[in-house]
Each structure stands twice: as structure tokens, then as C-alpha cells.
């Protein structure tokens, strides 16, 4: 018998319920039995052969139990919904808001009644104006003391930190980007015009969030965007300069800088700094 398995003598004695085995031997044997299938099989064989009394008891218990086990419904394995690992329940209303804003922007664009459609002026699709900042709304809720009740608990866990924030951000993007793609397709806005600004905004929100808190960073970025781009665009009914395709290299640069800043400060997201 190999050195890693229990001696046949010991297993036989154990099966018989021999009280002469030393306590430490019993202990070692049981510890081994818990981990070793082979020895458990040997034990059941030894029990069947050498201890008819034990076998009788086990059989009686089984005979007693089996009808009841058959009657019990198999335990409903209540798998927790998979989505909490990607989104917190508090983020759902925020995502719903983002989706309804998108939908309304689309409706305005389609009916041509939106505020961007002054008589005789050029058309500025609302979807295009809002697309860059919409995911930021969802990201705001991803790591927030005010919005997430379980935030204090989450902050004390090993998973807290950049991977968790990124996971939640990714899930926001996974919902928002396809919706915007569909809206863009309907209104004739090309993805090239908004996708890069959208990602650039998301990365800057995260980068700034590492310093002042993700929610606060998102609020700042949305306000700036509304004041500097959306309001003038609506007033003049002209597509703002920053959303022309010439601006794409700048957005690319912002995305790269934002991503770089997030990576450089990745430790900050585990602490309370990013959480306000």
C-alpha cells in the first residue's frame, strides 16, 4: 500500500468501531478519509465485509429516508441573479433614465420637433449632442456613497477597487452603446461621430473620479458639456465644432490620457478617495 493511503489494518479496525485505535490515529484517519475517495471506498468495502451491524443500521436509515427524499422536491438552487456581479440594483434606475433620455432624443429627432430644429436652420440631432455624456450618467452610479446603500460594505471587501468599477462601467457601456448605435442608425448619425467622444468622456469621468469621486466627476463633466457644447448648439442650431469628424484625433488623445490616468492611479479606487 502506498504511503499516502491508510493501512488496511487501520481501516478494518475503524469499520468495526474498534476502541483500541489511538485518538490521534483516528483523527489522522478521518482527516485523510475526508480528502481521499479511494480510502472511503475501501472503508465502505471493509464495513460491508467486517461490520454487518453497521451495514444493517445504514441500510435501515436509508430505507427510512428514501421515501421521504423522493417526496421532497429537489432543492431549488436559488442562483443569485448574475447581474449583481456586473451592476448593482441601484444602477438599474439610472440605466433606465439613460435609456429613456435616449428614446426621447430619438423621438424629437424623428419628428423634427426638438429644440435643435429652428426654422430654416441646420439640423442638429439631439442623439448626437447627448451621446457622449449618456454613459457617464450610468458610470456615476457605479461607485457612489450617496446612491448605493451597500457602498460602505463594498468598500471594505477585497474586490473593491478599479476592477469592480471597470466591470460596472463596462456593463453600462454594454447597454448604452448598442442603444445609441441603433438610434444613430435611425437618425443617420454615424457612430464615428460620437463613439470616440463617448469613450473619452467615460475614461475622463473615471480618471477624474479617482481624485474627487466618480459621482462628482460625472456631474462636473455633464455640466461642462451641457454649458459649453449642448447649449450653444441648441441656440445656434449648428453642429458644434467638437463633434465634427476633424475633432476625432483630439477625442482619441483625451481617451488615451484618461485611460493612462486611470491605470496610473489604479490603487486610488480601492480607497475612499474615489468614493464620495
Amino acid at each position: 500500500m502506498s504511503a499516502e493511503h491508510a493501512a488496511a489494518r487501520l481501516i478494518d479496525a475503524y469499520a468495526r468501531g474498534d476502541t483500541h485505535i489511538a485518538a490521534d490515529e483516528v483523527w489522522a484517519l478521518e482527516a485523510h478519509l475526508e480528502l481521499c475517495r479511494i480510502c472511503r471506498d475501501r472503508l465502505s468495502a471493509a464495513t460491508a465485509a467486517g461490520a454487518p451491524a453497521v451495514t444493517a443500521v445504514v441500510d435501515a436509515v436509508w430505507a427510512d429516508l428514501e421515501p421521504r427524499l423522493a417526496a421532497t422536491a429537489p432543492h431549488r438552487r436559488l442562483r443569485p441573479a448574475r447581474w449583481p456581479r456586473w451592476l448593482t440594483p441601484t444602477m438599474v434606475p439610472w440605466l433606465a433614465t439613460v435609456m429613456s433620455v435616449t428614446l426621447f432624443a430619438l423621438l424629437f429627432d424623428l419628428t423634427g420637433t426638438g429644440p435643435g430644429h429652428g426654422p430654416g436652420a441646420g439640423r442638429v440631432p439631439l442623439v448626437l449632442l447627448l451621446a457622449p455624456v449618456l454613459p457617464v450618467l450610468g458610470v456615476a452610479a457605479s461607485w457612489s456613497r450617496g446612491l448605493d446603500p451597500a457602498c460602505e460594505l463594498t468598500a471594505s471587501t477585497p474586490r473593491a477597487g478599479l476592477p469592480l468599477v471597470l466591470r460596472r462601467t463596462a456593463s453600462v457601456l454594454a447597454v448604452v452603446v448598442p442603444a445609441l448605435l441603433a438610434c444613430g442608425w435611425v437618425t443617420g448619425v454615424t457612430a464615428g461621430q460620437w463613439l470616440l467622444p463617448c469613450l473619452a468622456f467615460t475614461s475622463s469621468a473615471l480618471a477624474l473620479g479617482g481624485v474627487v469621486g466618480v459621482t462628482r466627476a460625472a456631474a462636473v463633466l455633464i455640466t461642462v458639456w451641457a454649458a459649453v457644447v449642448v447649449a450653444p448648439a441648441l441656440a445656434t442650431s449648428r453642429t458644434p465644432l467638437v463633434l465634427h469628424t476633424d475633432g476625432l484625433p483630439v477625442w482619441g488623445l483625451i481617451l488615451a490620457l484618461g485611460t493612462g490616468a486611470v491605470i496610473a492611479r489604479k490603487g486610488a479606487y480601492a480607497g475612499p478617495g474615489a468614493l464620495r
Partner: peptide
């Protein structure tokens, strides 16, 4: 924590499982 925040719609098991996941 002193102010124990939780997700109201979770069952007891779901919530404790979620925390177990967060705690790796």
C-alpha cells in the same frame, strides 16, 4: 458597519452570497 446598507430586493441568501463573492 453601524449603518448597515443593503439591497432591499435581495433575499437573505442572495445578499450573503453577493457579499461572499465580493470577499472572494
Amino acid at each position: 458597519p453601524q449603518e448597515f446598507g443593503y439591497y432591499k430586493r435581495f433575499t437573505v441568501r442572495e445578499f450573503v452570497e453577493y457579499m461572499a463573492w465580493l470577499k472572494e
